[in-house]
Design a protein around this nucleic acid. Structure first.
Lengths: 168, 168
DNA sequence: TCGAACTTTCAAAATATTATGAAAGTTTAT
DNA sequence: ATAAACTTTCATAATATTTTGAAAGTTCGA
């Protein structure tokens, strides 16, 4: 396989994975493109390489910045904005964990905490089941939360070292 | 908060979380409803409680069975099928991990393995970047894969014991 | 073998998400 | 202050996903 075809495949695969995990396809593809590009690209170049519209490119780039996955760069004497993706996979994973925790996990934990407090008739099977389910899921969610927390705080060496040993 | 309202909230929250994680909202809601219900429910009851159509209920229930999250039950002397959800949160998490690994992670790893083999000009920055990105993501993906593998094989006590200690 | 009870299918409709591109907005050099 | 260079917005269009419900299919008891 030649490099251009391989690049294309990577962009497609990353896009598909993204869309399966709740990240929109184009966003994942733009990210993939930037991950494969040594230097920074302009909006124009991204639009052209992925055949997407200006508006879409703009929105997507803004979102990626919001996720902390890419950054704007400026070049002296130029008006254009350049976009550059951090190539450190561990940073990427950590960044995604951080954002998803904030956006999705935290709100759910808040609701589960509330629901854990609901009182009811101890003999009522409906209440007993409600209580068991909510309590157990709450525990699980808090563990996932702790895991994210640890990941977010940890540095790279921790990850490539300790995780590897634990799950060998 | 009273039980019926709390149940409703739980179903909504579970549905929202599901849709954020690539599981369709109705499927997550049906699952939530069954998680809150001590005994098994019929298609009819599910349709009514969630105000969804017969076709939708049927498809969703089939999918949930495919995910290994619920099971059909039959009662002696009755034609109707009843649906029952496993209430063990650890089983649920494990089952989801198993399915997503099979459906999403495995195919990506296959592609990454292929892309890792692509040869190129060692001096070419485009190739160097391609190579670093693909190799690193491949390593990460394989770690995630191993983690899933461990999770899937492990028993409940491992999870509630050892994971908790690691990420304290 | 019939028909009632129940389940499954699937084309069409409804909804939700994503993309477009022209127009408006902003910034900077002169 | 102006205009060129560039970025952002957003109503509309295109696409994708989900839901509906009536019709077809299946199963079982009599």
């Amino acid at each position: 396989m030649e490099l251009p075809e391989a690049r294309q495949k990577f962009i497609e695969a990353w896009g598909k994975l993204g869309s399966e995990w709740g990240i929109n396809r184009t966003m994942a593809q733009v990210h993939a493109l930037l991950l494969l590009t040594p230097d920074a690209l302009t909006t124009e170049e991204i639009m052209e390489q992925l055949s997407i519209s200006r508006g879409n490119a703009n929105m997507t780039l803004r979102d990626l910045i919001g996720w902390g996955l890419i950054e704007k760069q400026h070049r002296p004497g130029e008006r254009k904005e350049y976009f550059y993706a951090d190539k450190d996979v561990w940073n990427i994973a950590r960044q995604v964990a951080k954002e998803r925790r904030k956006r999705e996990l935290d709100p759910v934990i808040k609701i589960l905490d509330e629901l854990s407090k609901v009182k009811g008739e101890a003999k009522d099977p409906a209440f007993k089941t409600f209580n068991k389910t909510v309590t157990d899921i709450n525990k699980l969610a808090k563990n996932v939360d702790k895991t994210f927390e640890t990941m977010i705080k940890a540095d790279e060496s921790w990850f490539w070292g300790s995780i590897l040993k634990i799950f060998k």
